[in-house]
Design a protein around this nucleic acid. Structure first.
Length: 420
RNA sequence: GUGGUUGUAGCUCAGUUGGUUAGAGCGUCUGGUUGUGGCCCAGAAGGUCGGGGGUUCGAGUCCCCUCAUCCACCCCA
């Protein structure tokens, strides 16, 4: 196997046979999201580096060590988007959302993160995401989650687990952070290196640590919710209520923090077993996102789902693969140059009337051409040789029954139109 | 970034304690009497054994380096 034909680490070619499954995910997304009033927004795959630094938070793992950053010829620092929200919010700046008018958008496309590839984790991966921008209400958070569940249902994905938590308002952070710092400080010498640096940089993430030596201190850590304002607590309560009213099952996971700094209040994650270590198929929450040169945050609630992971779950659940939209049902066999000339022209006429066709261009034997027809799974073949040309007919053969008949080119076209 | 795993034909893999022209199955191509596929039969093509260096009379087999794969840590979608 030649390594030269392999794409760079963590990237993959998606061949036509697999693309059908991607189409299905995307059309499920369009269908469901449009039911909730969401329209598609397409933003660039790269942005000014500052958009992500400022938007996601300088101290996040993603910004610190996973971004594909480069300088363009104009000396601008640009970054391949590691997630979708920051770019969408950048696009929303200076629109009516800044005055509390709601915008509902979804997106899908490639994201880039310089991580070591593993099961369900690539350097270029694809997300479908949704953002409800401009307004804040617990009902919107709940509806966003409900829509995600609806989408998963549409994708025939069952057995997923919804976990939610609250991070409180930004104003609640300080007391909670202080309490956490105070609590962890006596234990910190026995904790892992990452946690040591998190203590000052980002205490919250200690709660998320999975290292053996950190589990004990974490287990008894104070519940941050206790430091939140009544307003924040009520907000979360209301989100939970609305979800229950919608009949959505979930568990409250006080340890659920998530890695990006822009989250406030509601955060959530959906996991699915049977995916390997990366078991999150979607995640999101409410955010207040600050962008360069803007002191007023863009607010909203949203989520992103990993397309590769959704596909993996579908496969694990044995969701039947969609029909290949690239089937070519008609194959034109020609015997001799004159017949080939005719077929090249006739093929185009068939295509213009909506019939997918492949015409053989090589001077191969009848048998060889029949074998090809069989291999590409043609439903019908049209055979043309000198005698057919003389009589102005084509032999039309049904590949599954083996029946064949002589038809004029015009009749053959109408016949095939009726069959395909 | 840190670990471990694997790397032989288009694909899935065999290759015995290092020993002559590197194998199988599937796939592909060509044939099995004039222009008819799938099944069957016959034959053919196709590999500098991921790359580089080393040990050896001799390396696909052993050692080192490198690249890539897959997986785990980490992080998250």
């Amino acid at each position: 196997m030649s390594f030269k034909s392999a794409p760079p680490p963590g990237t993959a070619d998606i061949f036509p046979a697999e693309v059908a499954s991607w189409y299905r995910l995307e059309s499920a997304a369009r269908k469901v999201f449009s039911l909730y009033g969401y329209g598609e927004l397409r933003t660039p795959v790269f942005e000014y580096t500052e958009v992500f630094k400022r938007g996601l938070g300088d101290d996040t793992e993603v910004v610190q060590k996973e971004m594909y950053t480069f300088e363009d010829r104009g000396g601008r620092s640009l970054t391949l988007r590691p997630e979708g929200t920051a770019g969408v919010m950048r696009a929303m700046l200076n629109t009516e959302v800044m005055n509390g008018i709601e915008q509902r958008v979804f997106y899908s496309g490639p994201m880039f993160r310089g991580e070591r590839p593993a099961a369900g984790r690539r350097r270029q991966f694809h997300q479908i995401g949704v953002e409800n921008v401009g307004r804040m209400a617990p009902e919107l958070d709940a509806e966003c989650i409900a829509m995600l569940m609806h989408f998963l249902e549409e994708c025939q994905i069952s057995g997923s687990k919804l976990m939610i938590n609250t991070r409180g308002a930004i104003a609640d952070r300080k007391p909670a952070e202080d309490a956490l710092k105070q609590y962890f400080t006596p234990f910190i010498s026995s904790m892992c290196d990452d946690c040591k640096s998190r203590l000052e940089r980002n205490v919250w993430r200690i709660l998320d640590c999975k290292q053996e030596q950190c589990q004990n201190p974490i287990k008894n850590a104070p519940d941050v919710v206790n430091f939140f304002s009544e307003e924040s607590k009520n907000y979360f309560k209301r989100v939970c209520e609305t979800l229950r009213n919608a009949g959505i099952e979930f568990t409250v996971e006080p340890r659920l923090v998530r890695g990006l700094d822009y989250y406030v209040h509601t955060v959530f994650e959906i996991s699915h077993s049977g995916l390997g270590a990366q078991n999150a198929i979607a995640g999101g929450g409410r955010y207040e996102l600050y962008l360069p040169d803007n002191n007023k945050p863009v607010i909203g609630v949203g989520f992103a789902a990993g397309m590769e992971r959704l596909l993996m779950v579908q496969e694990a659940l044995k969701v039947s693969p969609p029909e290949d939209p690239f089937k070519v049902p008609v194959y034109l066999i020609s015997l001799g140059q004159a017949a080939r000339d005719f077929n090249m022209k006739f093929a185009n006429e068939l295509r213009k009337s909506g019939i997918p066709v492949i015409a053989e261009v090589e001077d191969k034997s009848m048998k060889a051409q029949m074998r090809t027809a069989n291999r590409i799974n043609a439903k019908f073949v049209l055979i043309c040789g000198d005698s057919e040309l003389q009589q102005n007919i084509l032999v039309c053969k049904d590949m599954s029954s083996g029946e064949q008949s002589n038809l004029s080119p015009g009749d053959a076209m109408t016949f095939l139109k009726g069959k395909i």
